[in-house]
Design a binder for these strands. Structure first.
Length: 224
DNA sequence: GACCAGGCACATC
DNA sequence: GATGTGCATGGT
């Protein structure tokens, strides 16, 4: 028997959920905090992002209007623990500017309407790429768009579900075809892929007891 | 000390 | 259009 990629993806989800249980992402209180965290976590461990968010909170700066009014250099100093702080300060300023100037400071207004149009609005912001845009839409606005990250690519590559050169949009489309649009399901699935990726699909990691080991895979696929 | 972490923009070929 | 590189921290 040979399952279609879509069928494999549905089976993966059931197995991962049974193995790891609900992950209950995203660890943030408000949509604004989610969006800020999504930018801060670019190429950065979440633990470092938490420190930066705490500093922002202490300075009452978990607020896009406050960020918009703040000097970029001051913002950079606040978010320093998150790394690449000058780059991220510029990106946060760009994002806050769009929300404040074009949407009167109303983040939900920017994220509402036709989902692909909202996604296009996010992608137009300097510093927001496809992964960050989808993370904001899914985790801040509960819109059904799949977040494709490095773990997702590794897991799918290892199981021969995508080509080595598959791009972001094609992988996202694969999930959208396989899984009926649901913010709840896409939320869990992305978090579950991170969970299994961290445990089994990192460079040099073994996969003997991986919950996905029942499916055809290549443990020797070079990762990273 | 090397490598990694819930990317992205930009330069260069 | 496809690589390569800078950004910069804290953890392993």
């Amino acid at each position: 028997m040979s399952q279609s990629p879509a069928a494999v993806l549905r089976a993966f989800y059931d197995r991962l959920l049974a193995t790891y249980g609900p992950q209950r992402w995203w660890p943030a209180d408000t949509p604004t905090e989610v969006a800020i965290g999504a930018i801060l976590t670019q190429n950065t461990a979440w633990q470092n992002v938490e420190q930066a968010i705490k500093r922002l909170s202490t300075h009452r700066a978990l607020d896009l209007k406050v960020l918009h009014a703040m000097k970029e250099a001051d913002l950079a100093e606040l978010i320093r623990p998150a790394g690449t702080y000058r780059v991220k300060a510029a990106r946060l300023k760009a994002f806050a500017s769009v929300v404040c100037v074009e949407f009167d400071g109303d983040l939900s207004a920017m994220l509402s309407g036709e989902i692909e149009e909202a996604r296009t609005r996010l992608l137009a912001v300097h510093g927001i790429g496809p992964e960050t845009a989808d993370a904001i839409l899914l985790y801040a606005a509960h819109r059904p768009t799949f977040v494709v990250d490095a773990y997702t690519k590794r897991v799918l590559r290892r199981h021969h579900l995508i080509d080595d050169d598959a791009n972001y949009e094609s992988i996202r489309a694969l999930f959208h075809e396989a899984i009926k649009p649901s913010a709840e399901t896409y939320n869990e699935y992305h978090a579950l892929l991170v969970a299994v990726g961290k445990a089994h699909c990192r460079k040099h990691a073994r996969c003997d007891d991986c919950p996905l080991a029942d499916w055809p895979h290549d443990p020797n696929v070079a990762m990273g």
